[in-house]
């Protein structure tokens, strides 16, 4: 029992105690950003690694969460009756009706999760019932990400267009530029990731997790066991969408911006690559992949700005051909080799 929880406990102590003490605020902020991505990756690990649904459009859900949060922050800054800065610049004179409820932080945070979940349920119900799967599902989700970007860019006055939304100064009365606020945010992000990780792990080890693997490996057979695979997939996809939405909502105050460039096709793909590199069949692999690839991207881009894209592509090919189970798979193999 203790042995099983030891790796998680160690990582939790490092993340919650050591990192805030040792890292300078800038690096801690970066880590918080990677952990936000790790939450999305966890959802991808669940949907893809366990459920076989290759979702190339998690950016959509991440974006819905991010924009919900950003709308609240913007309205909070503008004050009662005020307009967000970008609306003033675009010549909008009256607050759009869509925006009004986001003045409530409860509504905004609720929608950050519920919006993605509802969209995923709608999409899943339409798509999985028609038995759309495999590459077709992947392409569909990718198209959704592309469409989302077009929609956001086109609605300049409503969404801030290409620039998105930025210049957030305050969250629940705390100054966002303050180091202690950022440290607090980091702890929130790390805790949310930890809780979601434990919950997802519980789910994967439960009967539902077995059912999900069965759906991945033999959807038709599962149907003849009396289960509705479309329902199982929809629920799982919705859970992963909810995680991405929550991650988006946390991302905005941590990083200070949300824009179409952060949630389109490329960022969605990058996360899938990260999950593959970490090891998609293990939840820890998904989380690890997101953090490692996040760090690698920062470190690499600081040295050679354009080289990262090629390195990332090469890494993906390398992992897929040589170590399909990712970093976690390689570590597992080394450990087994040492014991035998």
């Amino acid at each position: 029992m203790i042995k099983r929880h030891l790796p998680f406990a160690t990582v939790a102590v490092i993340a919650l105690v050591a990192a805030p003490l040792l890292l300078e605020p800038f690096r801690l902020g970066l880590l918080a950003k990677y952990l936000c991505y790790a939450i999305v990756a966890l959802g991808i690990g669940l949907a893809w690694g366990q459920g076989g649904m290759l979702t190339l459009g998690q950016g959509v859900f991440f974006g819905l969460g991010g924009y919900s949060m950003a709308m609240y922050l913007k309205l909070n800054e503008a004050g009662p009756g005020g307009l967000p800065d970008f609306m003033v610049w675009s010549g909008v004179e009256k607050l759009p009706a869509l925006w009004a409820p986001f003045a409530s932080p409860v509504f905004a945070v609720g929608m950050a999760v519920l919006g993605p979940v509802l969209l995923a349920v709608l999409l899943g119900t339409l798509v999985f019932r028609q038995r759309v799967r495999g590459a077709y599902f992947a392409i569909l989700t990718q198209a959704l990400a592309a469409a989302m970007v077009i929609l956001l860019v086109g609605q300049q006055g409503l969404t801030g267009g290409t620039n998105g939304m930025t210049n957030f100064f305050e969250l629940f009365g705390q100054d966002l530029a303050d180091d202690s606020t950022q440290r607090g945010l980091y702890l929130v992000v790390a805790s949310v990731l930890g809780i979601l990780y434990l919950a997802t792990r519980q789910l994967v080890h439960s009967r539902y997790g077995r059912l999900l693997v069965a759906v991945r490996d033999g959807e038709d057979r599962v149907r003849f066991l009396g289960y509705d695979p479309a329902l199982v997939k929809t629920v799982t996809f919705a859970a992963s969408a909810g995680m991405a939405g929550l991650a988006g909502a946390l991302f905005v105050p941590v990083v200070g911006i949300i824009s179409p460039a952060l949630l389109g096709v490329v960022p969605s793909l990058e996360l899938v690559v990260a999950v593959a590199v970490g090891g998609r069949h293990a939840l820890a692999g998904a989380v690890l992949g997101a953090v490692v690839m996040g760090y690698a991207k920062t470190a690499f881009s600081e040295q050679f700005a354009d080289g990262w894209l090629y390195l990332q592509g090469a890494l993906f090919i390398l992992v897929m051909t040589l170590a399909p189970k990712g970093i976690v798979g390689v570590v597992g193999r080394l450990r087994r080799a040492r014991t035998t």
Partner: peptide, 20 residues
């Protein structure tokens, strides 16, 4: 696990979130 998966098909989906 194969047998258990077959046996629990009448249970509501949420109740499967527990471990066997």
């Amino acid at each position: 696990e194969n047998l258990d998966l077959a046996a629990t098909f009448r249970q509501p989906l949420w109740s499967l979130a527990r471990r066997r």
